[in-house]
Computed example of a mutant assay.
Amino acid sequence: MENKIKVLIAEDLEPIRVKYAYYLGQCPEIELTGSVSSGTEAVSAALASPPDIILMDIEMETKDAGIRASREILASLPDIKIIILTVYEDDELIFSAFQLGVCDYMLKNSSNEEIISGIKAAYEGRSPIRPEIAGKIRSEFKRVKTYETSFLYMLNLLASLTVTELDTLYLLSSGHTRADICAIRHVEMSTVKSQIHSILHKFKKKSISEIITSTEDLHLLELVIKNRPE
């Protein structure tokens, strides 16, 4: 390799930082440009002297300091390759990192050979979609697809309610009792019970609380109420 790969280490634990610096220093193809202990310092170091690769710890001064730093660095220097370092596989944080544009992630207990191999692969633009990463991406797509399916399903069910049924469900979700609804809407208890029975039938549920929980999780009920025609 004609040009050395310039690497910046961002890791808040000094023993790990020193270990990485030592082993990277043994590789003739790599030049260590800096070693910092926070996301803030990582941003400053990267902007002052842009490296080719950054080994970025996710959790430093804050739980997501590495994510925040990566976002800021890539906004100004999109060609920098960032490899996320983590002690555990937090799917949500890791997927957030990939969405930002980081090119790889590695566990901190990866072997020195794996770290160096990952750096070289990232530099050459051939960061592999390793099985564990592919699995996380598939899981995320499945989660998103499930959410979309659930969202549309629940939206269709809400659309099947009459205006009075929708009002009743909304009042129940707002903490009002059946007696409250009778007073608010000036109707008999038998009317409210009939509407609740109809709602349960349409949703194929035994409890109104199940329906309320589902609509709250998807933030749907208020959306439907606010956007319904007058």
Rank of each mutant, 00 (worst) to 15 (best):
E14P: 13
E14M: 14
P15T: 10
P15Y: 04
I16T: 12
R17H: 01
R17F: 00
R17Q: 06
V18N: 09
V18W: 00
K19Q: 08
K19A: 15
K19E: 06
Y20N: 15
Y20Q: 15
Y20E: 14
Y22H: 15
Y22P: 11
L24T: 03
Q26G: 10
C27L: 11
C27E: 14
P28K: 10
E29L: 14
E29S: 13
I30S: 02
E31A: 13
E31V: 07
E31G: 08
E31S: 12
L32N: 02
G34L: 10
S35C: 14
S35T: 09
S35V: 13
V36S: 08
S37N: 14
S38A: 09
S38C: 11
G39Q: 10
T40S: 13
T40I: 09
E41C: 07
A42W: 07
A42P: 05
A42C: 09
A42I: 07
S44D: 11
S44I: 11
S44P: 01
A45K: 07
L47C: 12
P50T: 07
P50M: 10
P50C: 06
P50L: 08
P51R: 05
P51L: 08
P51E: 03
D52H: 11
D52S: 06
D52K: 02
I53N: 05
I53D: 00
I54V: 13
I54D: 03
I54N: 00
L55V: 11
M56L: 12
M56C: 06
D57T: 09
D57V: 13
D57Y: 04
I58S: 04
E59R: 11
M60N: 04
M60K: 04
M60G: 03
M60W: 00
K63W: 00
K63Y: 01
D64L: 15
D64G: 05
D64K: 09
A65D: 10
A65K: 01
G66N: 06
I67H: 05
I67E: 01
A69T: 09
A69P: 07
S70G: 14
R71T: 14
E72G: 07
E72P: 08
A75D: 07
A75I: 07
A75S: 11
S76K: 15
S76N: 14
L77I: 15
L77K: 08
P78Y: 10
D79R: 00
D79G: 08
I80T: 02
I82Q: 03
I82E: 04
I82D: 00
I83T: 05
I84N: 02
L85E: 00
T86H: 10
T86G: 10
